[in-house]
Structure formats: C-alpha cells, structure tokens
Design a protein around this nucleic acid. Structure first.
Lengths: 247, 247
DNA sequence: CGTACTTTTGAAGTGCCTCAACGGTAGTGG
DNA sequence: CCACTACCGTTGAGGCACTTCAAAAGTACG
C-alpha cells in the first residue's frame, strides 16, 4: 500500500497517532483485495470474522425490511472500516456492500484484538473513528426527522462533498456522484420520483446541479446556509479545507 | 453505590468483564451527584471535560435546529453514559438533559483516559457500549426513513420496554412513561397532534394502551410482529428475558 | 440503431401538518 | 369540597409534502 494510506490519513484526524503507529497500520493493511461493484462485504445477522477496510472505491451500509424496502445507513469512503462494529459486537445488524469496484483489506479477528486490546493509541483512534460514524448517524436522524426533502438532500450533498474532499476525491465545488437517484432515495427515505423533483427544485433555486452523474455546486457557502450545514459533527481538523486533487 | 451498579450490569452484557474489572468500576463510580429534572448535563458545541453517567432516573440526547425544532436522538437509562462520545472526541454535537430527577456520576478526563488507554478489558467494554448506542441509532434511522408513524411508534415502545426491563425498570408487559406526548413527537419526528392520533389508532387495534402516563401492552409478541421488532440489534445476552421488579 | 435502463412529468391519493377549539387532568387556594 | 388556573390531550377541517401508478423523454451501451 502506498504512503498515502487512507486509513492513516483518516485516523490522523483524531490527533492521536504517533510515527510508530503509522508503521503498525501500514503493516496490517498490506494485503489488498479487489472486489467488483455490488459485492456484499458483510451480511446482516451473520457472525462476523474480521473487518473489511475500504482502501479505494466506495461502499455503503443498509438494512432491509420484510417487504424489500431498503434504508441506507451510511456511505463508506477510503479509510473507513466496513464493519468494525460487527467485528467487536460479534455480529452485524446490517448489510455492507461495495457500491463501486473497490479495493479492500481484511483485518483478521486476531489483528483486531491485537490492535484494540493493546495499550496503544491506535485502539483509541479506532474508537474515535466509530464515534465519528455515530455522529454522522445523529446528523442523518436529525435531518430525516425535522427537515423537508430538499434541505435534507442539500445537507447530504454538503456532507458527502466534504468527506470526499478529505480523502482527495472531490474538487472544491464538484464531484462525481457514484450512484443513481434510486439509491439517493434509499438514503433520504423518500421515493426516487421525489428525488427527481427535489433535484429540479434545487436546480431551479441555483443551489445545486446534478446531471450526468456529476454534482456541481455554484456557491458552497449558500448551499450550506440553506440546509444549516455545520461540519463540526465530522470532527475534522480542517473543517473548511477546500481544494484537492480529483479522482 | 450498591452492589447492583447499573454500569456493571450493563457492561456485563458485553461478556468481557472480569471480577477485578467490577472492582475498578465500583471504585470510579463512587461519587454520586443528584440532579433535578431538566438539568442540562452536556451542552452542544461546548468542550467536554469528563463524562456523566446515569445511575438512576432517565436522561436524553437532542439536537436543536435554528427555528427551535428539536430532534431527540436517544434515551439514556441507568448504566448509560451521557456523553462518552463527547469526552473522547473533545466536544459534543448535541445536548444531553435529565428527563426526570436523576443521580449521576461524573468521571473525570483522567479517569476516562486511565480506563480507555489501559490494556484492560474495560476499555473494550466501554467501546462495546458506544457501538450498541450506534446500533440503536441505525434502528431509529431505518424506522424514521421507511416506516409510517404507527409502526415507528410501536417499534420505539418495544425497544424502550426491553431496555427498561434490562435494568429492572419495567414489568413484562407494562411500564411508566416518563414523558409527555410532545417529547414522544420529538423522538419520532412527527407533531404531538399526530402522536395523539397514532396512539388512538394503536389503541383501537388492541396493540398498545397509553393512559395516565402508563403503557400497557396486551400482547407483546403481537406488537413486535406488527412493527417488525427484532431485538438482536441491542446485543443483549438474553434478548427475550421477561419479568423484573418495577421501579 | 435498437434495447434496457434511468430520469422526468403528470394526475390522483394518502399521511402528516397546521390552526384552532374543546375537553380532561392535575395542582392551588379559598 | 369546590372553584380557579394551567397545561395536556383529543378532535375537526383544510392544506401541503410526499407517494403511487403510469407514461413519456432522455441516456448508456452493445
């Protein structure tokens, strides 16, 4: 794995890691495996042995209801663990699936125990990362409960843009949307028909343009103000960082 | 603090603690402080020093929007940390407030560091408990996104009943509801008017009776089936345990 | 250039909201 | 024990956000 190991990039945001920790993390994330899009990485209910880590590409978590409806619970970017929760709790309460073609590293149960039971700062940094995941869930819940669809969609775009920028997968005001409107609907908890109408509405307001899988934001500050986006819940060191290299 | 320390009761569910760990936890939760209902325990945005633990009574987390609307993000029962997240991340992204009169213990930053940076199983058990909190958030998000109000309300009641039973605060099919319909509305993300109609609907179906602050469930299995309640996400050792002593 | 899939648009229906009034339920003081 | 007061919960009527069903238009790919 190259020097810009996304796990190290991410955990550095916790401010906890030392140089030696970098070496340990580099060593345990050596064995990269390629998976095609739509591969199920973790199955709901099944006992979990080890934890997959996303190195490149994007994955997502979701839950299924009895009638087949689906709620997407989170997006996993490079540097994110697919299911550290499941590995530590013993079983997962949701599915995790590759959204795009992706590269993953599977940490074994032994490696996880070694990292999390040892008196290192790595354990705390990994804990930190699950706490940030939890903070994102609280933000989603707030939007789902209190905001109408266009503000909630705008908020999701603001969050996704920023998270992509952190790992160098977005420009300052644009990025490639790696999924279709049907999945956006499963994220927001609305129908794909309404996603289409909501996108038209935001386009008409000049806040957001999504076409040909590409999101372009005319004025990021205005979009943020519109949906009350406050990035502090992501606990980034540089929450207003801007440009970076593209995909 | 008595022998039935709720923190120990809760963390025992993780299956990680030894007898020595119990002694350590007993020692750090000695200094109980009483707070009246509606006391703000953790403020959104403020830097967090130490973490309050609920010993008796009930607290809850919430977020405020600019216009004053509120989304409740979780209920905290005896044995739950109010804001371990905030203590570890450095600042909290939401408010935590006592719902009823409550007893709390404040763990200092030093104690938290000692417990979470040491190579003990306590650190893992505390991490385990934040992961269960996260699993509850995923369940709430799924209900909020995919279920109509009466199923979501029923699901919340099933979860709350079970969590109260674990700490001995509910009977097999009934419990005292410690809050009014307006707060139930802020939990579910609907208006209090609609909470009232939804409760009438569930009462008419014979699934649930809430009156004079007391919830009575004629047939728990039927209510669970109605809202697709599957308690595995709570990661309890005995998910179908039933009776216990009342408050 | 056709085929399959996504997105858009329209029309009608439903769940939930808003506003407003009425009824119930404590708690307080006479 | 009864008034008075202050909420809380219930009910009704009308409106809006989102859904459902269906068809048309746009897009990607062999």
């Amino acid at each position: 794995m190259p020097a810009n190991n996304p796990l190290i990039l991410k955990l550095t945001q916790s401010g906890l890691l030392t140089e030696e920790d970098h070496a340990v993390l580099t060593e345990v994330t050596r064995d990269v495996r390629h998976v095609p899009a739509e591969t199920v990485l973790v199955e709901q209910g099944a006992p979990v042995e080890g934890a997959p880590l996303v190195v490149s590409g994007i994955a997502y978590r979701y839950r299924l209801l009895q009638d087949g409806r689906r709620q997407i619970l989170g997006m996993l970017l490079p540097g994110d663990f697919c299911d550290l929760q499941g590995a530590l709790l013993g079983s997962s309460d949701h599915y995790t699936e590759a959204l795009t073609d992706a590269e993953t590293v599977w940490l074994t149960r032994e490696t996880i125990d070694r990292l999390t039971l040892a008196p290192t700062r790595i354990a705390r940094a990994l804990w930190w990362s699950t706490l940030v995941d939890e903070a994102i869930l609280r933000a989603w819940l707030t939007n789902m409960g209190q905001q109408e669809a266009n503000k909630w969609l705008a908020h999701f775009i603001c969050e996704f843009l920023l998270r992509l920028q952190v790992v160098g997968r977005a420009q300052a005001d644009a990025f490639e949307m790696p999924f279709r409107q049907a999945k956006l609907a499963d994220i927001l908890g609305i129908t794909s028909v309404h996603v289409s109408r909501t996108l038209s509405d935001l386009r008409d307001r000049g806040l957001l343009d999504l076409s040909h899988r590409r999101v372009k934001i005319p004025d990021v500050a205005r979009l943020r103000a519109y949906c009350e986006f406050d990035p502090s819940y992501l606990h980034l060191k540089r929450p207003d960082m801007l440009p970076s290299t593209a995909t």
